[in-house]
Design a protein around this nucleic acid. Structure first.
Lengths: 361, 361
DNA sequence: CTTAGCACTCCCGTTTCCTGAGTGCTAAAG
DNA sequence: CTTTAGCACTCAGGAAACGGGAGTGCTAAG
């Protein structure tokens, strides 16, 4: 059944009303919100119809209506007005984006904090969606017993490690090693680094002291953790202010779930999408997210890689505001990190793609 | 008034009983716990005396007793038995400590997680208590438009940054810059880097393109943030399981407080102490910590610097277990990072120092 | 199709009541 | 002087009872 214009208006009002108040919306409240010129009885008839069709539900007889997942989905896909960010909001975002001058990890942490502040929901960032490969290896000689490995990965992530050796090495050996590593390891991902390769590298560099394996070990570990890493969460505490997380147990489960970066990285599994993706309640794969919603925006992280920035909140979340803000931030990040210097097409524009659009007739 | 042996026994029982159950302890419960061979009436008399002296209090008439701060203090200073870690506990700690092979930041994050797991309280780590200085600057040439700055600080922290230039530079310029920076900046802290110094460095290196100021900017920023940074928190969600944080508002305030690394760094302000320090409730400087307790252990971070690892929990926290675990972890960290290769004296030994020991007669 | 009217439902905040754990005090016993 | 038994008293907190009010569904008329 196709919804009439009035029904859409009413659904719209119920969703936004519920987003505002977290309380079921009754016929009178709908009347107030829509400005419709009919009586509450008419509204009641329409509400009954929408309930029958599965867009709304009642917590109990004689309460107002609350949107179902199907109702939210329709709202997000069709009804939601693209929210324009106000001048001050865009200014704030731009200011914050340009403020961070440090490394990429810090940048992402800062951007996450910013998303939290703007939306007042916990924010997640995921830097490297694909698995990284080696771009370059450098070794800085400090003294006979110590050196620094500097590893440049695709996505322009730089990792380093200070190594103290229990024996002495020489600057020439390290220089040689650096050259051999660059020759042998450039472009490799973690799986491609085999024990044989390490052995042949060791021979090629004439390393008799086992420095090679120290370096190779660092490469492997970094590549391994960089796959799932780059995940970052901030603002978990904000959940506690929401009425739906007043139960400490519920809050605990979710916050705990979010504090494991493995779980965050798993969000990457969300199927391909263009700009902004909204996952409502049970549309989420993870059990722990089944009664929350996740909004994700993807950005261009350079080197052909994509990153994600998103927030987690109750299903009753202000999707339009959140989507607009995340989209804008993602656009800014793409500009900052993306391949070309020019802002990517569609920057700041909002295109929602969702889960299976299960709005049936 | 000096407490009698029996009174101490009773106080001991009340504190540990309350730590266990989070419920006020009555005369019968004391009897059970101490195995004392007297009647509950006698216990009641003693409880009344301890209450009069300010070691205990009653939530309301006709409830059991709860320790006051003064009671906890006496317990921590005099009564608490040094808890020996079990073999499996020390093994677990050792295994985890040796497991982490990455950079220092990651190590501290991992150690924090470990402390959370072991104590089930939120854990904090603070890496660099004192402000760091430059030990060495290296510049890695990538291509005409990009290079990596690698900065080695006291405490063997390594920081890096990949810089993209909007113009071209040359490898020789970068090599020269690296040399000049090492000559001019080694040993300097953030305040000592003046605009004049930067200008003279620029001249000395013959840099006409402003690369010098990019590098100097990174140094300044890194030194600045490294002062308060190195702060790390994990396991905040664990608070939500505790009965004293069932009020979401209370939990929110504390978690929020902990999520600002500025606040964590402020814990450094705690006066000098030897091994483990316990701050009970209002002994804390920060308002937000006034009804929680903090246990801190300090470790040798090398280069004459000290770091802190600690946990935050309710005043009713298992001080002896927590102190023992933190002390052991700190000992392991000192061994790992500390100046000498040999384990520092007193490793694994437990010496408590507290706030002003305000146990008055 | 809309609307006024009305009976009905049921959540939720308040009040009342009651039970039981635990106390303090007194008076006798050691 | 200390310990103990006995007893009256207190009070938090859960269970039950209550009432108001928001909101519904239905019917019958416009």
């Amino acid at each position: 059944m196709e919804l009439s214009g009035r029904q859409k208006k009413i659904l719209h009002a119920v969703v936004e009303g519920y987003i505002d108040t977290a309380e079921p919306i009754g016929s009178h409240a709908v009347l107030d919100r829509t400005g419709l010129t009919c009586s509450s009885a008419t509204i009641r008839n329409e509400l009954a119809a929408l309930t029958r069709e599965g867009y709304l539900e009642q917590p109990h007889t004689s309460a107002g209506r609350v949107p179902t997942v199907k109702g939210y989905r329709l709202y997000v896909n069709e009804l939601m007005r693209e929210r324009e960010l106000s001048q001050s909001e865009t200014e704030e975002i731009n200011r914050k984006l340009s403020g961070t001058a440090s490394g990429k990890d810090k940048l992402m942490a800062d951007v996450g904090k910013m998303a939290t502040e703007l939306t007042s929901y916990p924010a997640v960032t995921i830097s490297a969606a694909a698995s990284a490969t080696v771009k370059r290896v450098d070794i800085i000689y400090i003294d006979p017993n110590s050196f620094i490995i500097v590893l440049l990965l695709t996505g322009d992530t730089v990792k380093n490690k200070l190594v103290h050796l229990p024996f002495s090495s020489t600057e020439t050996l390290l220089t040689r090693l650096s050259a051999v590593f660059n020759a042998n390891f450039t472009g490799l991902s973690e799986e491609q680094i085999t024990p044989e390769l390490i052995a042949s590298t060791e021979r090629a560099a004439g390393d008799t002291m086992g420095v090679t394996s120290v370096i190779a070990g660092f490469l492997i570990e970094t590549l391994m953790t960089s796959r799932g890493a780059g995940a970052n969460v901030s603002g978990e505490a904000n959940l506690l202010k929401l009425p739906e997380f007043q139960d400490p147990d519920k809050a605990h489960r979710l916050i705990n779930y979010l504090s494991d970066s493995q779980n965050i990285s798993a969000l990457t599994a969300a199927p391909d999408f263009g700009d902004v993706k909204v996952l409502i309640g049970p549309e989420n794969a993870a059990l722990e997210l089944r009664d929350s919603s996740v909004v994700l925006a993807s950005y261009d992280a350079g080197d052909g890689m994509r990153g994600l920035i998103g927030v987690v909140g109750p299903t009753r979340m202000d999707y339009s505001a959140v989507a607009a803000k995340l989209s804008y931030i993602a656009g800014g990040l793409s500009r900052l990190l993306g391949a070309g210097a020019s802002p990517p097409a569609g920057f700041g524009k909002l295109m929602i793609k969702g889960g299976e659009s299960n709005v049936q007739k």
